[in-house]
Design a protein around this nucleic acid. Sequence first.
DNA 1: ACAGCCATGTAACTCGTTACATGATTAC
DNA 2: GTAATCATGTAACGAGTTACATGGCTGT
Lengths: 183, 183
Amino acid sequence: MPSSLSTTSYALLGLLVFDQETTDGGMTGYELKQRADNTLRFYWASPAMSQIYTELERLDRHGYVAATEVEDGKRTTRRFAITDAGRDALGEWLRTSASEFPQLKHPIALRLMLGSLMGRGEVRAMLDDYLDQLADRRRDLAAVRELLGDRNDVRFPAHVADWGLAYYDSEAEIVERLRKEID
Amino acid sequence: MPSSLSTTSYALLGLLVFDQETTDGGMTGYELKQRADNTLRFYWASPAMSQIYTELERLDRHGYVAATEVEDGKRTTRRFAITDAGRDALGEWLRTSASEFPQLKHPIALRLMLGSLMGRGEVRAMLDDYLDQLADRRRDLAAVRELLGDRNDVRFPAHVADWGLAYYDSEAEIVERLRKEID
DNA sequence: ACAGCCATGTAACTCGTTACATGATTAC
DNA sequence: GTAATCATGTAACGAGTTACATGGCTGT
């Protein structure tokens, strides 16, 4: 019964590792989505809500998470916590499966390839617009990095955030240089 | 009938723009796949052969490419060339549709986030391995860049290749720094 | 009261992949 | 002759999205 999970599935399971087990055990699907928006989004993908619930269901079937129904006023919410089996599976995955090379889908680069079909001004506008978006992203990630501080339990997520920040900086630099070359 | 095409579809159409119209008109699906492996692969994705043929079929239905059957010894191969309508559609797409922000799927960063579940040596090995892969990639892309030279018709693809090379260099630098910090 | 957030799910669909099938041509 | 490459397609499947549907809770 390997019945391997997708990388996204392991990624979500991984987010549950950093759950600081509050009074109730675990996180809701909604909370997990928020965490994904704050972390996974920057170097993987933040799955749609519907997929979060689907994956949690799947992880539950594998016994990698434990669900508890919590009475919350009039409604009942489900909270999910990673199990020991889940932690084992995650460690096994990290240790035995090969790391794929990163996959980049870069619409700006793609369009730049076709720069000869655009006017000079259009190319410049596209790159400027990209620089703006890049700055927005960087701000978002910097805010997340701030939250992590230097707490030891999130030392690795902090490393990843630093990586992301350095990447955004380098990307902005490259695009600015490119912009000048094209003029 | 807008019946918008996917970005991948436009990307393939874009590759046909650089077809230096030889004796026969256009490229075979097989040749297009090779070109995608040399270009698209680095900043988008190189579709599977089966998808190439599917997309060419679709582009043909839209009138964006023209197919010609060519007798090639005992077999008949189909060659595809971009049409004027195709060039128009591509320009329209470049001018009117918004550019999405790049999407990065980075398994190494994802795994690094879970570094606390791995041994120090395992993390280091993972990063070293990534640096090797990165160097391989860079070599491949540098070879492609070489081919482009300074020909004016491929000025923009060359810009994109330069962008990629700078990205790989920056990424290697960041990972090396990270490696030291983790030790 | 009304908006905005919290919370959970199902159904239909798209995009793209792998597996399967087939066969000609070319280089050793 | 036989392996690698050229060449073309179909079928089944998987991963993930958007649209749809529902309803409670919270702040103003």
